[in-house]
Design a protein around this nucleic acid. Sequence first.
DNA 1: GGATAGCTGTTACC
DNA 2: ACCGGTAACAGCTATCC
Length: 801
Amino acid sequence: MKLKFIGLDYDYFNLEGQDYVKITGRSSERKSVCLVDKVDNFFYVLSKKPEKILAKIWKVKDVKKAEILEKSYLGKKIKVIRIYCDYSKTKDVGDKIKRVDKNLETRERDIGLITRYITEKGLKPLVWYEIEGELITGNDFGGAGNLDFDLCLSLKESKELDEKEFNPKVLAFDIEVENLEIGKGEILMISLVSDNFKKVLTWKKCDRRQEYVECFKDEEEILEKFGEYVNKIDPDIITGYFSDGFDFPYLRARAEENGINLKLGREKSRILFSRGRPLNAKIKGLVHVDLLKFIETVYSQYLQSETLGLNDVSKELLGEGKLEVDHEIKADDRSEKQWKDYFEYNLQDSILTYKLFHKLWPDMLEFTRIVQEPLFIINRFSMTGLVENYFIHNLNRFNEIAEKRPLYEEIGKRRMRGKYEGAFVLQPKPALYENLAIFDFTSMYASIIVSFNLSHPTFLEKKEKDSQEVELEKGKKVYFSKKKGFIPSLLEEIIVLRKKYKKELREKPDAIKKARSNAFKLLANAAYGYNGFFGARYYCLEAAASTAALARKFIKQAINKTEKQGYKVIYADTDGFAFLLNKKTKKETKDFLKILNSHLPGIMELELEDFYKRGLWVTKRTGEFGAKKKYALITEDGKLKIRGFETVRRDWCYLAREVQNTILNDILKDGNQEKALKFTKAVIKKIKKREVDKRDLIIRTQLKKPLSEYKSEGPHVAIARKMQEKEIPVDIGMLISYFVGESKKKRALVRERALLPEEKGEYDIEYYLNHQILPAVENIFEVFGVNVKEIIKGSEQKKLF
DNA sequence: GGATAGCTGTTACC
DNA sequence: ACCGGTAACAGCTATCC
């Protein structure tokens, strides 16, 4: 029979010596479909004389087939032996072959069977196909026909379709518990949200409840009901926020405690966990998406949120946040009203998760289609994982066999290697400037990698004739082949595609085009980091160091040319520089940009970032030099661009950031400091009169490692310890909040004065004046010759007399 | 013993 | 399991008077 099909989840099995992939997905009529397709597992053996050992390899146990092929490895043509065997025997067969001759090496034993299936022209995830298959019934294919799908087919033919749209059915869920430690308390309630569906399942005080609350006898019943609802709703995707690390582990622990066997989805799967850390929770035949994971790797760079918690992220992306509820009250002490609030709170979390999913879906969909790994995997990949798998899924076009993943020992060696010189940063001269422009290189590092062919396979151990030479530092040169490598080729393609989709997006915007353009941009940006990453298959520190060295060379060159043209360059960092127009017109400046571009090699390109009305650079707090990576600009239509200032740092109190932001605004808009100074004086007065709200004085710092590993006990570490004593859970990654209070002790350390936000105590006037407000404004006023320190001191003396 | 300079550890940003 | 550069804090330590 024929139908339109889209694949969501992949699994595999072996039957009578043949490997199969089982794809679960949907038909265009939304029928649930399971599809079985053959896959032949193989790997490669590298040998100097493949013909000589071929016969011996045929004799190794469990080898199904061995053939000699012309392939390419690290860009060089070679003859290799391709070995076919059952997937489960891959390791074993490889080890036995190595015993035939100790000089033999294997490759692609570390390619998973599903990846293999997809690269060898199997069905790609989240792509529509017209398929033709044979109905599987009963016990065929090990009982696949007995699974709870509308249709189970064995695949005969498939044709990729052009159709792009796919709206999956999604179920979002969230649990509430009393004890946050996994499995250590009871699950009080579970909320579920899907299309036109809202439920809170609970077994706590619900005699007078909201209509969406369903009441049960005990925890066991809500767990069972949860399973029933998942199966009744029959979603394509089940999603949560940090559900890999919290909700699913908790659900499984409590199910075990209650002696029930949760069977989820059409395959009646248990909740399965990966070995090691971080945990990930898988349900066969039902894709579990943990939104936090995707946000961490792909989305966080676009977010302003100070944490990646559900509340902050929802507020920014959806414009609504979590509800408030007091978690401290023990379950038995909650009033009826408090329970109703708690149900509402629990439901809201699932509503937010459900909405966030749809906001992020175009991005997850496009990354899945571009990188071609299943959604479950894409959701959990790091940025380098996405880059590397994009390469792997495109190797066949270059007839390449994959380099091996580095093992523990090799990773150790790589980590021992020293650092290399990074970007160039020009020291600015502190001042308020007028009429500026910024030029920057588009995807500078990626365009250098492409233009100079920098990668592991193109790297040459020593100089060869007609090779590309790069000087890393004085007298230290490295060489790369000029024959275009597959990594620079793929990267060039990524850059070209990004441009194409960006243009299409401008012409006719939609969420899918935006996501696609964005995905290619992110892949291009991550390629440089990939080269220098110790875990990469195609690790090449020389390529990374060369990229940085060439970037330094070209930005310096551009700066020199710009100065020669009569402009004054004020500042530069890595891939862009700011300069004064010096009475030249915008038109002249744009024309000059064209000249600069005509002399750049390869696909390198400079672009005009913007023109600015004013820009402010300040001194460092130590010394009279201009501070790097710290500046504020305003465009002609009043848009602010603030970099590096305390304003953008979350480990400063809100008041200091607010004051700084206000005065930067005033100064850039008016071009003078009068208004800003008046405002600052008013704030100083307010602090001294203790009129400032304590909430505006809270400082938040992230805990980056376990408490025991800190050598130096900063204020946030001291507070974290205090929290632990009070049995407030403290974990790595948490933002620790505190304020600085007064102390009777003279010269007390900050950590001795630090107090929890809810602790009683007056704030320390001296600390907030001299350690928060002063550092935030001092350098800015210094540009105008105003000494804020004197102002603070002066008003202190006035008070004394 | 207290003050202070300079170094180290730490966080956050470009 | 992404790179290096930079600012700036608080804590820590050597050194001086």
